[in-house]
Computed example of a mutant assay.
Amino acid sequence: MSDYIEVVVIVEGKTEQIFIESVLAPYLANQMIFMRATQVSKPGQKGGDVRFERVRRDLEAHLKQRPDTYVTTFVDYYGLREWPGLDAVTPQARPADIAECLNKATAKLVSELFSAQQAERRFVPFVALHEFEALLFSEPAILARALGVAEPEVAAVVKGCGEPEAINNSPQTAPSKRLNNWSVTGKFAKTTQGISIAQQIGIARMREQCPLFHRWINHFETLVGGQA
């Protein structure tokens, strides 16, 4: 038994790494869950083209380093390419269905590849629906104020889709594209302004509005004190 756990998060890019380290990790540390992020992308490389083979190398490295750590992913569904279960996702699939399809397929493959490292127990897949920016729609008032747009306009997007994680992932209506359209420069600064907005919203509010994100965090919470 252990009263704390350590988690390595393999993330897509710099924004996700900063989010984990400056927003999520401090929140979880209060519950004795110590999380650190490692970026799968090479320095200077843009995100949005995440292939399993790239992540696989990182998974292997971290699963083999220490047997007492957990390893997870934080990658955007919007940018996935050549990923377990991706071909089985239908255009009409709901966010929960997409997540279940991808996470199950990923967990199965990783467990088979790294059975000697107890990947079935230690690996926790997570694909963000549809991308990190969706979390910023958890509180329309804060997002609208930061961007200088009318709150009802932001709220209408969330209401129309049902929840932040259901915001459409098309090239025109993905969360990141909507934020770009609202930005005065035409390019939303997610590594700076995005992180600032996330800090103002807070993890608790994101969990209330984003059930898949909540479920991912809750998995680690259930492990504290119950680790084999």
Rank of each mutant, 00 (worst) to 15 (best):
A166C: 11
P152Y: 12
R121V: 08
S176Q: 03
P125E: 09
E153T: 15
A155M: 07
Q172I: 06
L143S: 09
V149G: 00
A141V: 13
T192Y: 08
H214V: 02
V184K: 15
V154H: 01
L179T: 08
K159D: 13
P140T: 06
E208S: 06
V158M: 06
C101F: 03
C101W: 01
N103P: 04
I203W: 03
S183L: 08
R145A: 15
F137S: 00
T173S: 06
L113G: 04
A174K: 11
F123T: 08
G160A: 14
I195D: 05
A204H: 09
R205D: 10
T191W: 05
A119I: 03
A105R: 05
N168H: 12
N103D: 12
V154A: 05
A119H: 04
L129W: 04
R145E: 14
V157D: 00
L136S: 02
A155H: 00
N103K: 06
S196G: 14
A107K: 14
V158H: 04
I203V: 13
C161V: 07
A119E: 13
N218K: 13
A156F: 01
L136G: 02
K159F: 03
V154N: 00
A105L: 10
G186E: 08
T173R: 09
A156L: 12
A141S: 13
C210D: 07
F188C: 13
G194W: 04
P175M: 13
V158F: 02
V157N: 02
I201L: 05
K177Q: 13
S138M: 11
N168F: 02
P164G: 14
T191A: 14
K159Q: 15
S196N: 14
R122I: 09
A150K: 06
G148D: 01
E112D: 12
P211W: 11
E112F: 03
I197L: 07
A156I: 06
T185I: 07
I201G: 02
V158R: 07
F213Y: 10
G194Q: 09
F114Q: 07
T185N: 11
I167M: 12
F126V: 11
P175G: 12
L109S: 05
T192G: 04
L147R: 00
E120D: 10
S170R: 05
K108E: 15
P211T: 08
L143Q: 10
G148S: 01
V157A: 00
C101V: 10
A146H: 03
S170M: 12
A204D: 13
V127A: 07
F114K: 06
H214P: 03
E163H: 08
A174N: 10
A204M: 10
K104N: 13
L135Q: 03
P211R: 02
